[in-house]
Amino acid sequence: MTTITRLPHPEVADVALTDVLFALSDPARLQIVRELAAGPLTMAECGVTNPDLPKSTKSHLMKVLREAGVVRNEPDGRRRVVSLRRDELDSRFPGLLDSVLGTD
């Protein structure tokens, strides 16, 4: 039986604004964050707006977002669920996500 391991996520106090801005600067990563703003998705659902994206590229995009502290990527049975760390980011950088995502 395969066990899905937990991936490391930075503590919100360790999340740097420059890392978040870098992660959000790529159009493909920003699109994933926009999709996640509506709620958590499985890895398979993320990036459905670009189905031609290779799996390795999608994995790299997710890694950058996770390591920057923008998303959580947690095991859920045999799949992974990705969620936006909105509450944590809003407390650390008030108004940033609303500004970047164009919401009020």
Rank of each mutant, 00 (worst) to 15 (best):
M1H: 01
T2L: 06
T2V: 12
H9D: 07
H9L: 06
E11A: 10
E11M: 05
A13E: 15
D14L: 04
D14N: 02
V15S: 00
A16N: 06
A16D: 01
T18C: 10
T18D: 13
D19S: 03
V20H: 00
F22W: 14
F22H: 09
A23R: 10
S25P: 11
A28R: 08
L30C: 11
Q31Y: 15
V33D: 06
E35L: 12
A37C: 08
A37P: 09
A38V: 06
A38H: 10
G39Y: 14
P40M: 12
A44Y: 01
E45C: 01
V48Q: 08
T49Q: 01
D52A: 12
L53F: 14
P54H: 06
P54M: 08
P54G: 03
K55E: 08
T57H: 08
K58Y: 10
L61C: 05
L61Q: 05
V64F: 05
L65R: 14
R66N: 07
E67H: 04
A68Y: 14
A68I: 15
A68V: 14
V70G: 08
V70T: 15
V71T: 10
V71K: 00
V71Q: 04
R72G: 01
R72V: 09
R72T: 06
R72Q: 05
N73V: 13
P75E: 09
R78H: 14
R78V: 14
L84W: 02
R86M: 05
L89I: 02
D90S: 12
D90K: 04
D98S: 12
V100W: 03
G102K: 09
G102N: 13
